[in-house]
Amino acid sequence: MMTTREIAHLVNGRLHGDADRTLSDVAPLDECGPQEIAYVASEKQLPALRKVQPGAVLAHGDLLPQLPDPAQTPVITVDDPQAAFIEVMLRFRPLPQRATIGVSPNATVSPTAKFGPDCNVHPGAYVGDRVVLGARCEVGPGAVIGDGVILADDVTIHANVVLYHDVHVGPRTTIHAAAVIGADGFGYRLVDGRFLHIPHTGTVVIEEDVEIGAGTTIDRAMIGKTVIGAGTKLDNQVMIAHNCVLGKHNVFASQVGLAGSVTTGDYVQCGGQVGVADHAQIGAGAALGGKAGVSGVVPGGQRYAGQPARPEKDAVKSYIAMTKLPEMRIQLKTLASQVEKLQSQIDQLTRFPESRAA
């Protein structure tokens, strides 16, 4: 339990209204009750706020005139309502503290593996030959750390992740359950009517502060490296093919798929189910809307949508035109019928002098 006065002090905010209102938890705005606190980030959320009776609200000071009467609903104004809300949330709902279990006797660990201080290897995990783990690494149950893998400091590998041999993972990276990093790329040669597998002798390099979602797959390079740039965040079930090189701070939503040898600049954003053809180049700061289809070179600093991907404004115009096609089809049939009638009348007029002459 916390009072509104305590919360305002915690977030360095300004309290408007009852300082002794007692709150027990945080809640989404549209579900917030009399003993809970929510936050309002923009005017768009005000209609939702009017439908509930929250115990208190975090908001930017600019919104204060549009908020409920603070005498009824205390308001704490801050510069960044979402950041303040997260701070309050973690006070009400502290994250579990990291346990110290060391290397479980029920894990399978090569005698040649090396561990930094304060590492945890959970039961059922496998750690191969010549593996190096930095300080404070976490290897979850059932995870497989292949031969020659290097984990830098503070890497978290969740349950059932598979890191194939010689993958490198940078510091403070988190890889969520069932992700597979370093499998061979989808490369084959057609020889005498049969597809023959191309060996992939490269690796995957994941730079620092990366987060990789559950079930995501990142293939190793045929030669060289598949690279995931620093600070990049990949959602669940993303596919990155062999020899792709992602820039720093890319953000990809679920089911994005990159074919082989794609390159991206820094701060590229991909909505859900974006598909990128092989050898495409996406410039820094490009933002691709959901289901966009990308090939060739996409200049940076713009928003794109559609299949094939094109500037968002053009894609919207095309979409609007597509919605009008049924109406245009009817109009076209009507015009075609009218033209046919006019042509028939013209034919009659041009034949009339001939019949008179006869």
Rank of each mutant, 00 (worst) to 15 (best):
P123M: 02
R50E: 15
V205R: 12
P308D: 04
A292R: 01
L67I: 09
A230F: 00
A135P: 07
K317Y: 05
P308E: 06
M239H: 14
R303I: 14
I320K: 08
I150G: 01
C119Q: 09
V227Q: 07
K248L: 00
A286N: 08
Q345G: 15
T73P: 12
R91W: 03
Q273H: 13
P311Y: 04
V210Q: 02
P299A: 10
G285V: 04
K333V: 15
V205Y: 03
A143S: 08
T264F: 00
Q72E: 11
V132F: 10
M328V: 12
K225A: 14
L258H: 03
L23R: 09
I223Q: 09
A315D: 13
V57A: 07
T203A: 10
V205H: 04
L234H: 03
P70C: 11
I175L: 07
G301W: 03
D69W: 02
L133G: 13
F85N: 08
S318Q: 12
R220K: 06
S104N: 03
G13F: 00
R329Y: 11
V294S: 03
I330N: 14
G265H: 03
A230C: 02
R5Y: 00
V205T: 13
S104W: 00
D347Y: 07
R172H: 05
E327H: 12
Q348L: 13
A143N: 05
T226D: 02
M2D: 03
A287F: 01
L64G: 06
D209Q: 01
V162Q: 08
R98Q: 13
Q97S: 14
Y267E: 11
P199F: 01
V274D: 05
R5N: 06
F115L: 10
T77P: 07
V238T: 11
L288D: 05
V121M: 06
S261W: 00
L163Q: 06
L234I: 14
P68Q: 11
P65M: 06
G102R: 05
I150C: 12
C137Q: 12
I101C: 15
T4I: 00
D129F: 06
G275N: 04
Q345V: 13
H16R: 09
A159T: 12
G142H: 00
K225W: 03
A113K: 08
A135C: 15
V294C: 02
K248A: 06
A315S: 07
